[in-house]
């Protein structure tokens, strides 16, 4: 997952007002998958223990320190959110989705995500400089 440095900045800035969860889902480019990553070698998870091991390895090297949750082996959460390979959402306390990002990597818009986080956190958003 990319942009984890910026996500960590948001986590540090807003985690006193909101919950953040990094939901670790199936590998997008597993070594035994259709399009393996050339740089990171992680096999498809066959058990929740495999997923935990992959998530722990990733969390160790990632700047993002938000609490990590694991999707189940049926990929229920990832499927419900069409989240593969990466995606961001904000859930409201009224039971509704308040931010729905586009699917990554090309649809990721961290500026839009941060603006929405700031609104939810009740932080005044400064006008963009032109």
């Amino acid at each position: 997952m990319r942009q984890t440095g910026r996500l960590q900045e948001m986590y540090v800035k807003y985690s006193d007002k909101m919950d953040f969860y990094w939901v670790y889902i199936q590998e997008a480019h597993a070594t035994d998958g259709r399009r393996p990553s050339r740089t990171v070698k992680v096999a498809l998870h066959k058990t929740l223990e495999d997923r935990k091991k992959a998530a722990s390895g990733c969390a160790t090297v990632s700047p993002l320190k938000a609490p990590v949750l694991l999707d189940d082996m049926e990929d229920s959460v990832s499927t419900a959110y069409s989240a593969l390979p990466e995606r961001f959402f904000i859930l409201g306390t009224d039971g509704k989705i308040v931010y729905a990002g586009k699917r990554g990597p090309h649809g990721i818009d961290l500026d839009a995500l941060e603006k929405s986080i700031a609104v939810q956190a009740g932080v005044k958003v400064e006008a963009e400089e032109k």
Partner: peptide, 15 residues
């Protein structure tokens, strides 16, 4: 499904 605070979900994996 029932957050008590606004909740950010970050989906991703190592690869």
């Amino acid at each position: 499904s029932a957050p008590t605070k606004p909740t950010v979900l970050i989906f991703g994996s190592h690869t």
